[in-house]
Each structure stands twice: as structure tokens, then as C-alpha cells.
Amino acid sequence: METAIAPTVINEVLQYIQQHLAGNLSLDRLAKYAGYSSFHLHRLIKERTGDSVGNYIKTKRIETAAFLLSLTDQPISQVKELVGYSNDAAFSKAFHQLMGCSPREFRKQKMFNRDLSALPQEYISLEYHIERKSDWQALSFPSICNYFDNTFFDCWKPAKEFLTQSTIQYKDIEFWGTIHECPNVTGKEKCRFDATIQPASFTVPADIFNTKYKGGKFAVFQFCAPYAYFKDITIRISQYILEDTSLEFREGYSFLRYHQDPITNGPDYIMTKWYLPVK
């Protein structure tokens, strides 16, 4: 019985580790998740990975940090927290041991290097936080599209045309996406998406902001991946909320906050925060 079940359980534990790098990954917690004793789980993971649980987690944290440092412009202090380190010295030491240089040196060498076949192909954290967002106004460019199609980012073309003709600099604005529909209800080809820009460091006349969005309480998750993973990521996060938390969805739009410019960077490997409306 164990022979048949153990590989599936270990796969689930390894996936749990990858999706909770920012959280507490003690052996006791992992054992409770798996339904095994700590001793038994440690033995099974070592048989599978060839490494102790602690070293395996450390390696995954540093590999993922390298992935984020290479493909996003997230500050090193934030990357450190995203992979579960609270201490700068401990993070730098662990990073240097595995990668052979400091996080800062690595970023300088590898920034936006897309050839990272040895590193993870996605980052998704199920460690969320709750944020209350006030009602807000923004300049939006609505379109009807398929959220999961690789042409989805064509929705940003009208925004690009507007910015080309204006004096607004990309560095002075925040890029948001507003998701209006559930593809399972509306149909995947009939979903409205607003490419949305909001000032980050300048003031413009109020009449330029043509859409008012309702704020409220949101659960905020983060991910960074090839866009082909977007559908799987949204399903995984939604399932996690419904099955593993006490959160309840409420009516309202969800928002994507892009931490890199989606117009010039394209759809892949953008560090994204997903704001999901909850009660």
C-alpha cells in the first residue's frame, strides 16, 4: 500500500514546498500535511531527492530567488521575503553558497536573461496577505478577449498608442489589469479585460481618468511565470482559497498589478500581484 501511495504524497509535499517558500516549512508542518511521521517523511524525501529536507528547501528557495532576480526588477529585499528569508545576512550567505556570488552580483550578471533552463519555470506563492483598497480612478482601455490565449496582451496596444502620443513616462505610472468575468460563466472568448494605467509619481487632471473602480477587501497573491501557466495558476489559487482557507469570495472585479511594464516586457515572467475580492 505504501509503495503505491508514497510517490503521490511526496509529489504533493514537494509541490507544497515550492508554493509556500515564503512560509513556515518545518519538518513537523510538512509531516502533518503529508500524514506521515517526521522521521518517515524525511526518509522518503531523501530517497526521492537525494538530499535532506532542510537542504532541499534551502536549494529551492535560492534557485527561486535566482529566478526572480534574473527575470523581474523586484527589490532584493522583497525577493528575500518571497522565498522565506527575513535576515539579510542569512539570505546572502545561503545565496553565495549555492550560486557562487551575492544576490546583487548575480542580478547584475543575469538581469532579464531568459535562458534559465536549470531554474524553476514558474513562481507562485500561496502565502497571501489581506489588503483593503479604496475606490480608485484610472484610465482604462476595455477589450473583449480570452484571458488565457497567448494574444491576450494585445489588449495593451491601445494603452501603448495613448502613451506614445502623450508626455507621460512609463516609469511614472502603475500598470493594472481589471478582470471582469469568470470564463467558465461568460465563455472564454467573451471576457472583458481593462488594460488600466494609474499615476504612480505624478498628478494629472482628474477628467483624464475615465473609469472608477470599487475598492474593498482583497486577498493578494503573487506569481511570476510564462504566460502559458496563467490558467493553471488562477485555478490553483482559486482552489486554494476555497479548499484550504476560511476566505469567501465576494462580488466584484479582480485586479492584476504588474510590477513590470507589460507593454514592452511582453506577457512572460512579469511579477504580478492578483487582487481577489473577498468578504
Rank of each mutant, 00 (worst) to 15 (best):
L98Y: 07
I57P: 08
E122A: 11
Q78S: 03
M111A: 14
Y56T: 06
S117G: 12
L41W: 11
F112R: 12
R104E: 15
L98W: 06
R48M: 06
V79T: 10
T72V: 03
D88I: 01
T59Q: 14
K80W: 00
N113P: 11
K108L: 13
Q74E: 10
I76S: 01
M99R: 05
S117P: 01
L69V: 11
K93Y: 02
F91D: 03
N55A: 08
N87S: 09
D51P: 00
V53M: 07
P120N: 07
K60P: 00
L68S: 06
E122N: 08
C101V: 13
A90Y: 01
M111K: 14
P120I: 10
V83F: 08
P120S: 09
Y85S: 02
Q109E: 15
R48F: 05
R48Q: 15
F112P: 04
V53N: 07
K110G: 03
Q78I: 07
K110D: 09
D88P: 02
I76Y: 02
A89E: 05
A66I: 08
K58V: 02
D115A: 14
A94V: 03
R61W: 03
H42C: 06
K110H: 15
Q97P: 01
H40W: 09
L71G: 08
Q74R: 04
Q78W: 00
A94C: 06
Q121W: 03
Y85I: 03
